[in-house]
């Protein structure tokens, strides 16, 4: 697969840019967290495209952001569960 570049992104519409980034990020995230991959990818797509490109190039950077996103997601879900219990 051809690596995604900034110039490739620049040629696309904003909505398409996120789609392209998501398609590249998803399989990498799925390797780390198979059941949460869709949600984590959705969260990470809120980040700037330039940083997302960097994450695609740097395993270390991607890994740390994914772990950050998982922590936020779990805290969010725990809060929801607590609220439902009353």
């Amino acid at each position: 697969q051809v690596p995604l570049t900034a110039s490739m992104l620049a040629a696309a519409l904003p909505q398409e840019q996120k789609q392209m980034l998501g398609e590249r990020l998803y399989p990498l995230i799925q390797d780390m967290h198979p059941t949460l991959a869709g949600k984590i990818t959705g969260m990470l797509l809120e980040i700037d495209n330039s940083e997302l490109l960097h994450m695609l190039e740097s395993q270390e950077s991607l890994h740390s952001k994914v772990e950050e996103a998982v922590a936020v997601l779990q805290a969010h879900q725990a809060k929801d569960t607590a609220q439902k219990k009353g």
């Binding site: 519409l13 904003p14 909505q15 996120k18 789609q19 998501g22 398609e23 990020l25 998803y26 399989p27 869709g38 949600k39 990818t41 959705g42 969260m43 797509l45 809120e46 997601l73 969010h76 809060k79 929801d80 609220q83």
Partner: peptide
Amino acid sequence: SNGSNINWPPEFRPGEPWKGLQNIDP
């Protein structure tokens, strides 16, 4: 408002159009 939103975050599904960001300026 407590800011809670059980639908957050939007889920990305490969092969489907991404609709998570509806408010991007063209």
